[in-house]
Design a protein around this nucleic acid. Structure first.
Length: 476
DNA sequence: TGAAATGTTGGGGCG
DNA sequence: ACGCCCCAACATTTC
């Protein structure tokens, strides 16, 4: 067999382990690895920073030979075809609607040129088109979907090993480091300094994180994952988004844990349930590509959203006067991450107490989250707003005071991110405006000065929301 | 993976 | 000892 070079186009699969496209290419012969920063792709500031470092890591693992280009993937690939004897182009599938369309065009073009062009399944355990109800339509409820994939479908394939004989075409004039810098992903203003010490980026770091999660935090996951002051969550989301780790590996490590009997089944089940939620959001985005833009439930088109820039700004900056909400929003800003329980609370607050459209929240999250992901983000915002598929019922409105008292009882989380309230006793921590004057003084809190008064009243805004929701339901 | 309103029960204080 | 009321604790309903 005398093959030409196989071009491996990396996208959201920045790893060597269990990378089907890379594995197949390495079996075939020499490999030319490529990453294209698509000019049309909307990338948040925070995830851009992550991507910068992730590409650097991948490049190192590929012997400093990752080709990195900013531009239109189709023309970049065609250009490389003229420079190297490439006769195959492999990649792993992505599922964003614009990607699917683009990949289809590129594949057709390459096939016309008699290039062996193949795509592989790498970032989803089940292809969205392979999971359907008995009437051939897609699932719109999570639980039946979960049952179907977990118990009715063939189990996911086993992860692939590292390619054993990887022959990479070296770059003759090696400028890849500069090329990666040239993508302009690395921020010129050093806003990332508070995130830097918290995250280890790249495939190796992702592996380490999975192992330490399995060893330390998985035990007790079912209960403790709800408490933002505990650190009983995996923090794998950014690694998963960029494909630094394979969901297949996570899946099989969890199966192994099941046999080991050292961790109760319920902890493993609840973690896998979250992993399947990720599958479900990609699944929905595939079947309903307008999910990032349009209310899934059309009756929500007449919902009386408000445009209150000052409220939106207060929410973004973590100055709403509700300590748990503010803690969450400041965690996001400072760390590029937010605990899932708090994500639900701040999202409920934005949509149901401030009456601001979920798309505003989704936009902010995409810009600030290191794990910003179109599928997960769109589905979850619509879920909270009530407009989505199998969404939370409209009357499920979180009360940030009660949520704080229930899930951050000692106030460790809230005090960490809202330090100006750190001296406030827990009785008043989540409702400082109700605290007696002398308590506030003793804690060094001056309302309206060191910490804001609440920007809306919970009770009245809640009632207003319930009324509005009831109205759009009646009119539908 | 809600919260508030409303309903029910039972113990204890008190006349 | 009894009935009455209050209220906490829990359950159910409603949005």
């Amino acid at each position: 067999m005398n093959h030409g070079i196989t071009l491996v186009w990396f996208r959201q699969d920045l790893r060597l382990w269990d990378n089907p496209a890379l594995f197949a290419a390495s079996e075939r012969g020499s490999v030319l690895p490529l990453y294209v920063l698509d000019e049309g792709c909307l990338l948040g500031e925070a995830s851009g920073w992550w991507l910068h470092h992730s590409l650097n890591q991948l490049n190192r693992d590929l012997n400093d030979s990752l080709r990195v280009v900013k531009g239109n993937p189709e023309s970049v690939i065609l250009d490389l075809l003229t420079k190297y004897p490439i006769d195959a182009v492999y990649w792993n599938r992505c599922y964003d609607p614009w990607r699917i369309a683009q990949d289809g065009r590129i594949k057709a073009h390459l096939k016309n040129l008699h290039i062996d062009c193949r795509s592989f399944q790498a970032s989803l355990l089940w292809e969205p088109w392979s999971v359907l109800k008995s009437d051939e339509t897609p699932y719109k409820m999570y639980t039946p979907f979960y049952r179907k994939v977990s118990f009715d479908m063939a189990p996911p394939r086993h992860p692939l090993p590292l390619p054993t004989h990887l022959k990479i075409i070296p770059i003759t004039h090696s400028h890849t480091m500069q090329d990666i810098h040239g993508l302009g992903l690395h921020p010129s203003i050093p806003w990332y300094t508070s995130m830097e010490p918290l995250w280890d980026i790249g495939e190796r770091a992702a592996q380490k994180k999975l192992q330490s999660f399995l060893k330390h935090e998985l035990l007790g996951y079912k209960e403790k994952r709800n408490f933002p002051g505990e650190h009983q969550v995996s923090h794998l989301s950014p690694h998963l988004h960029f494909g630094e780790i394979s969901p297949y590996q996570i899946w099989y490590e969890m199966q192994l844990k099941t046999y080991s009997k050292k961790v109760p089944l319920k902890d493993i089940e609840y973690f896998l349930r979250e992993l399947v939620w990720r599958e479900f959001s990609y699944y929905l985005l595939y079947h309903f590509p307008t999910l990032p833009e349009e209310n899934f439930q059309k009756k929500f088109n007449s919902f009386p959203w408000k445009e209150t820039p000052s409220h939106l700004k207060a929410w973004q900056e973590g100055k709403t006067g509700y300590p748990l909400v503010d803690a969450g929003m400041r965690e996001l800003w400072k760390t590029g991450y937010m605990h899932n329980r708090v994500r639900m609370v701040v999202a409920s607050f934005l949509t149901k107490n401030l009456f601001i459209h979920w798309k505003e929240g989704a936009k902010w999250f995409l810009d600030c989250l290191l794990d910003a992901d179109l599928a997960n983000n769109s589905m979850n915002w619509q879920w909270v707003a009530g407009s989505g598929v199998d969404a939370a019922p409209y009357f499920r409105i979180f009360n940030p005071i009660h949520q704080g008292e229930k899930f951050d009882e000692m106030g460790t989380y809230t005090r960490q991110f809202v330090p100006e309230l750190s001296q406030l006793p827990k009785k008043w921590l989540f409702k400082p405006w109700k605290a007696p004057e002398e308590v506030l003084t003793a804690a060094g809190v001056i309302l309206g000065d060191t910490y804001p008064y609440p920007i809306v009243d919970l009770k009245t805004s809640r009632e207003e929301a319930l009324l509005a929701y009831k109205q759009i339901l009646r009119n539908s």
